[in-house]
Write a protein that binds this DNA or RNA. Sequence first.
DNA 1: TCGGTTTACGAAATCGGTTTCGTTTCGACT
DNA 2: AGTCGAAACGAAACCGATTTCGTAAACCGA
Lengths: 356, 356
Amino acid sequence: MPKMAQTADNWETGCAMAQMRIKDIAAEAGVSPATVSRYLNNRPGQMTEETRARIAAVIERTGYRPRAAARNLRSSRTNLIGVILADIANPFSSAMLEGLSASAAARGCSLMTAISGNDPAKEAESLTRLIDAGVDGLVVNTCGGNDEAIAAAAGRLPVVLLDRDVADGGVDLVTSNNRELVAGLVDALASAGSERLCLLTEASDDSPVRRERAEAFADELSRRGLAGEVVTLADGGVEGVSRLDETIRGYAGKKLGLIAVNGLVFLRLTEALAQLGPSLPAGLKIATFDDYPWNHVLFGGVTTAAQNTLTIAERVVERLSERIDVVTTTVGDAAKLAPKRIEIPGHIEHRASTSR
Amino acid sequence: MPKMAQTADNWETGCAMAQMRIKDIAAEAGVSPATVSRYLNNRPGQMTEETRARIAAVIERTGYRPRAAARNLRSSRTNLIGVILADIANPFSSAMLEGLSASAAARGCSLMTAISGNDPAKEAESLTRLIDAGVDGLVVNTCGGNDEAIAAAAGRLPVVLLDRDVADGGVDLVTSNNRELVAGLVDALASAGSERLCLLTEASDDSPVRRERAEAFADELSRRGLAGEVVTLADGGVEGVSRLDETIRGYAGKKLGLIAVNGLVFLRLTEALAQLGPSLPAGLKIATFDDYPWNHVLFGGVTTAAQNTLTIAERVVERLSERIDVVTTTVGDAAKLAPKRIEIPGHIEHRASTSR
DNA sequence: TCGGTTTACGAAATCGGTTTCGTTTCGACT
DNA sequence: AGTCGAAACGAAACCGATTTCGTAAACCGA
């Protein structure tokens, strides 16, 4: 049976008229498929205003939509961006996803997402699954442990790292200015009268981000001549909390200032403080990273180092697009872009928890 | 230039050996492309154990991966599931995304995500974008206002609604047993001695979920002969909070019990309570929907109606897979599955906020 | 009016798998 | 041995767009 029979026949049946193909549109408009294709991708090879209008009319009338699979096959471009997130429970990740989604949509791209749940094996699996699916590029918020695989992927297609770097560092990275944010929080606490500062971290978190913040913290203390230390909580539940409890008690009355290295640590801090009693120890000041909704509420407002998630997302997609354009344009791989580290400034939200 | 030259020549260059095609694998293994294809999709048409092994060896050695675009084109199946979420900031959505991601991956599918941000226009745009991208099926957590478009989509491809229903209701829906959860919270408050109950809602939230919970609340009150009402907060910031403030003051001393209809309302409640003073009004009991991390912490633990997000996600994917299988198997659309409403039981976490 | 260049467009190859259909092979049963 | 049916596999069509290449028409300056 020739194709004609399938398509042209709107004829009698009101029911599901077969999907239109570019051929059918071309026939209907009296042009060749090539011309319709040129119209769809508004290619430089211009066409008569009249031809354009005729094609547009037919497409409008028939509601034709080109099949992505066919397009992808020939052009080997999918307009898909793969996103691998380490921990979606972290509001930083959700905010990022929303930003990425918007930025990608603005460029006509869709997002393919995978969530590793901080499991390197899952991350590796996601990596190959997304690449196999044919994404044009990859955004990776790595949980660590896959540095070689990620570097290898970056050699095969555009990759931009989000927030967390890989070891050998030959890959683009977009992150916040952690050092300055740490300095900002230290300043807020010091200005509020804290004499001794602790940076609270988790044992399980050995990410570059944590390390960077810890280093910046140490540097900042010595620069200002302040006393303090990095306190690492044991993983999970009770033990970590009681260790924290001890820490706080140990310092009680000495104008202690605490910085939670991320939102989860801050929640554990809150828990520990609740165990200490109904009100904050005298003179205790606190601050945290990550601007979660409850930071506005707890302790009458917690001073926060807020990351500029929307801008980060925008720059990630922008950078990825640059790489994608280079790959699809350039013949050889000689003209590859040099890896770049992009820092997006965040800011400090001063709230009640560091008031004098 | 014949294809041979492109591929077989590993030869001298250590550099990027050209991508293998199924033809090349076939040639290398001494079989036809059709057979390799059968191997890849382990089709019923069996092959000799020896042939299978030979193909496996070649694929293993060359690291061949079939191009998804080509496969999609011929089979018109993408193994992609589209997900549209209304509000990713809501931890319910993040949890759901994680669950969907895991369930889909278990079936060899990837997720294409779009986030509407509760904007009907964006939701509509996402709908067409995902469909155009060729997803096999769609999971929609609708923000409302696109009921006809969603119903139309459900006529063209498998669609399962998540949590929120559409008006005419001809579409599969997976949701929690909201009525029983409401009853559970009412029971918790009543058992804690509350004499008068309020369900706190937001004006901007006119979702079926809110309505269902509000109705169940009213029913439950009358069933138990309890006094109470639904309190609708004005949208956003201060006004809503002060209205809430008034409500609480108005009832103060009367053994009031409050239920936040969702996590965001609960945050606003927390804010309002903080404005009232350092400690809870005497006899005030509270409870909320959505098991956010901070529910463990605030007020020493807040009694919560927790939804079983993992199970919901699993059932959503399962149901969608059923529909996808039907579509790709059945010739006509006569044998379509009847729309189904699936309720996943949640449970009540009893915490300090409703202790006697 | 005539070469030369650009512009508009069509014919056909192409992307890399899957699927159909037909052929061969092989074992089992008379 | 002959027949039959199923299993194993190959040849070639096919999915529906894009892209290359070629050609005819239009334009343009001399």
